[in-house]
Design a protein around this nucleic acid. Structure first.
Length: 580
DNA sequence: GCCGTTTTCGGCCCGACTGTTTTCAGTCG
């Protein structure tokens, strides 16, 4: 299997989870969590290291190294098999209930024989849960509420696409209040994870009670209040029905709180460990001297990181996958920023069937956004429902110069080609050669296996007129998983053929996934960032493409969208040249 | 289980909220 790291990380994570449920020492659990994170983020293929080399990876010691070797030799880890025997699957299931942790799950199983969610529902119903020592009616009601919430959905995480609008609107309403100095999304939304467990919004205010009262009273927003304290209000929302945590902090703690509530948890733990070594302490209010309590930083994120001897870390990189070490030694990559992106490489007009705005409206919106160049990539003819004919495309081509002149930006005459079952694309080479920019994507035969899809992409990349692969994994978040691609081969082929791999910012796609972006960047691939806009508003998706690229540690130099028009044309020409 | 600018042993990040055990445990992030 290519890239053993992902599978090793998954196994180690499962060991950590089961050890926690078995009531093992918390530090041992954490050691496995860290080993899993280290394996997932390792830049070398752990499948190719011997046992001694494995222990040189930070976070992997002798014990874990032996287990990795065992996994490679036998396909399984004995400890994990034992734990799966020892910890009933029902207990694992119980901890999916919000508010029900490992201790309670174990007791429910041991003392009441509860083996799953159905048993739990019955025991809540007949009062056995409430009768346990240390629990009571209110604890039982809380667990019942949690059980009801997960019953409504098949997953406990929500695609980021479903909550972005809510977060933006809430922050807008909050900032309109006199009592609020600032409001911003934090948590996994700010880190640009593709799904969120809950929605964190941070508010700087000197009148927390007033703000909390306003939010609680917003019946458009709030379905139910889950927790209510001086610094935190937690509610379940209407609409997407997610848990929303509103954190209320004094304005002078804004930076410290933003770091704290942005996370990730693993990143924060690392920060606090560093602080301890330096005689400091970090919490959500400030960085302070451990001995004297004297405050060192807290107003801005930059000063919080600086007080810890670190460069500011872009939020999408805060996953404890090496960013803190890099920030300490000054080797943090200068990842691509929104300011550096001057063009968009994938977008549609109503020349093809699913575009919802006219070519002129799209060009105007691209200019409004401040882009120096915009590629219009309407669907090509093989997409029978939506594709544009040759005649449509030639007419579009005629219109481009005048629009470029009128709106003051360069326009690339582009296509989104369809990769057929054998890796071929629309039109003939002669016609394709007349276009500036061609993205090729899979739109049909989505059910084929990973080997077939990998082959289709690689064949398409060998075509000298295919400049980028669009939404490579084919996933739709919350709807369908991506193809089971051999990413190593896809990435290697992209590098060999001089083909860009797209980072599609449509929130249902976020494709390539950030972890694949990181591997592609390490392998020297070139990235094309794309809004894949079908409406004028869709151009804003370029922001999510940038943040996904940041999560993948992509430097501006790896991203075509940071380049001027001449450099972009040189990339296209180089591929055609290579194919001669 | 991992690790070392104080350590090869003995530590290992920090605080809010809730409910129930009037001083704390469990859960969460």
């Amino acid at each position: 299997m290519a890239w053993a790291n992902t599978e090793i990380a998954r196994q180690l994570e499962e060991i950590a989870e089961l050890l926690r449920l078995a009531g093992e020492d918390a530090f041992r659990v954490r050691a496995y969590e860290r080993a899993a994170a280290a394996a997932g983020a390792a830049e070398v293929d752990l499948g190719e290291l011997d046992e001694a080399e494995l222990t040189e990876v930070k976070g992997i010691g002798a014990s874990t190294a032996a287990k990795i070797v065992e996994f490679r030799a036998t396909g399984e880890i004995g400890l994990l098999s034992e734990l799966r025997e020892q910890v009933p699957p029902g207990v694992v299931e119980l901890t999916r209930v919000p508010g029900l942790g490992p201790k309670t799950a174990r007791r429910l199983h041991a003392e009441l024989g509860i083996g799953g969610l159905d048993d739990l529902a019955a025991a809540l119903e007949d009062g056995r849960v409430a009768a346990l020592d240390g629990l009571g009616e209110r604890s039982a009601a809380r667990i019942a509420g949690g059980l009801e919430r997960i019953g409504a959905k098949d997953t406990d995480r929500t695609p980021v696409a479903d909550v972005v609008d809510l977060a933006v609107e809430l922050c807008r309403r909050l900032e309109a209040l006199d009592a609020v100095e600032r409001a911003a999304p934090a948590g996994s939304l700010r880190r640009m994870r593709e799904t969120v467990g809950d929605l964190d919004v941070l508010v700087a205010t000197s009148s927390p009670a007033e703000v909390a009262e306003t939010v609680r009273g917003d019946t458009d927003l709030v379905a139910e209040v889950l927790a209510d304290g001086d610094t935190k209000l937690s509610v379940r929302t209407r609409g997407p029905g997610v848990q929303l945590d509103v954190r209320l902090v004094e304005p002078e703690a804004w930076g410290a709180a933003l770091v704290y509530f942005t996370g990730s948890k693993a990143h924060n733990v690392r920060l606090r460990e560093r602080a301890v070594r330096d005689g400091l302490t970090v919490n959500e209010y400030a960085v302070a001297d451990r001995e004297t309590g004297q405050r060192r930083a807290g107003v801005t994120e930059e000063e919080v990181y600086a007080a810890l001897g670190l460069a500011w870390v872009p939020p999408p990189m805060r996953e404890d996958t090496g960013e803190i070490e890099a920030a300490a030694e000054g080797s943090l990559p200068q990842v691509v920023t929104e300011e550096a992106v001057v063009g968009d490489l994938h977008g549609h007009s109503d020349v093809s069937g699913d575009g919802r705005a006219s070519l002129e409206a799209m060009v105007a919106a691209a200019a409004e956004r401040g882009l120096a160049w915009w590629a219009v990539t309407d669907h090509a003819e093989d997409l029978t429902m939506n594709g544009a004919s040759r005649a449509d495309l030639l007419a579009r081509r005629e219109a481009l110069p005048a629009l470029a002149e009128r709106y003051g930006l360069a326009l690339l005459d582009g296509l989104e080609l369809n990769i057929d079952g054998e890796g071929g694309v629309d039109y003939d080479a002669e016609f394709l050669a007349t276009f500036d920019w061609c993205v090729a994507s899979i739109h049909t035969m989505l059910e084929r296996d990973g080997a077939a899809q990998t082959g289709r992409l690689c064949t398409a990349m060998a075509n000298p007129h295919v400049h980028a692969i669009g939404h490579p994994s084919g996933r739709l978040l919350g709807q369908r998983p991506g193809y089971d691609l051999d990413w190593e081969r896809v990435i290697a082929t992209a590098v060999e053929t001089g083909t860009a791999l797209e980072v599609n910012g449509a929130l249902r796609r976020l494709d390539m996934p950030a972890e694949v972006v990181r591997r592609a960047v390490q392998a020297g691939a070139t990235l094309s960032l794309a809004s894949d806009a079908h409406t004028t508003g869709g151009l804003a998706n370029l922001t999510w493409a940038v943040r996904t690229a940041q999560r993948g540690w992509a430097p501006a130099s790896a991203v075509l969208n940071t380049r001027g028009l001449e450099e972009l044309r040189a990339f296209v020409a180089a591929k055609r040249e290579r194919a001669r």
